[in-house]
């Protein structure tokens, strides 16, 4: 009987959480920058989510799941790539030679997916995640603050810095 109840639990868990699989994978992939790691982390995150699903009473399944995906991603990032995280708040990463690129030129290239991908991948993880959450998932500042575990007031400033940095990196690639 317990077996059947647990199967029903899995059923309702899947019904609520599997629709967010693409969102989960997209976030993990941007954070980890590697296909295999992203898949492993998403699988692990779903398992963790299932184990604590009894504690989920909210209505925002996507934000709840993405929080777990994010935490699981950082566990792996911290373990494997201490280097990646040290650059996080290094705002002084030197990007030379982009001063001559005008906003109009950047705009011309702003639909170049490959170029954007390369520039995004250069950003620190905090910037990659906030850009993915806002630009791709269209999440509100409030949802982002919950997922990234930062105060709501920090979301706007971090997003602004992430966008400025991304523009800078795009310009740097164009002037090469």
């Amino acid at each position: 009987m317990t077996q059947r109840r647990e199967q029903e639990d899995v059923g309702s868990f899947e019904e609520v959480m599997l629709p967010h699989l693409d969102a989960a994978h997209n976030l993990a992939r941007w954070l980890l920058r590697n296909d295999q790691d992203a898949q492993d982390v998403v699988q692990e995150a779903y398992l963790r989510a299932f184990k604590s699903f009894a504690g989920f009473h909210g209505s925002n399944g996507r934000a709840w799941l993405l929080t777990i995906v994010r935490n699981t991603s950082y566990t792996l990032l911290k373990k494997n790539r201490a280097v990646d995280l040290t650059t996080t708040f290094d705002e002084e990463i030197h990007v030379a030679g982009h001063e001559s690129v005008s906003p109009a030129t950047i705009l011309e290239h702003s639909e170049d997916a490959e170029l954007i991908k390369e520039a995004m991948d250069e950003l620190p993880s905090e910037f990659r995640e906030i850009l993915a959450l806002r630009h791709q998932e269209g999440l509100s500042y409030k949802e982002i603050s919950e997922i990234a575990q930062i105060p709501p007031g920090t979301v706007m400033s971090r997003l602004a810095r992430a966008r400025a940095k991304l523009k800078e990196y795009l310009a740097a690639r164009m002037s090469k």
């Binding site: 693409d22 997209n26 998403v42 699988q43």
Partner: peptide, 24 residues
């Protein structure tokens, strides 16, 4: 424009099945 052009990494086929298998 950047937001629209940023590549979206959909879950690859097979990941859903892997997850369902691991839950079972």
């Amino acid at each position: 424009s950047i937001g629209k052009a940023t590549p979206y990494y959909k879950a690859p086929s097979g990941l859903r099945e892997r997850i369902q298998a691991s839950l079972r």
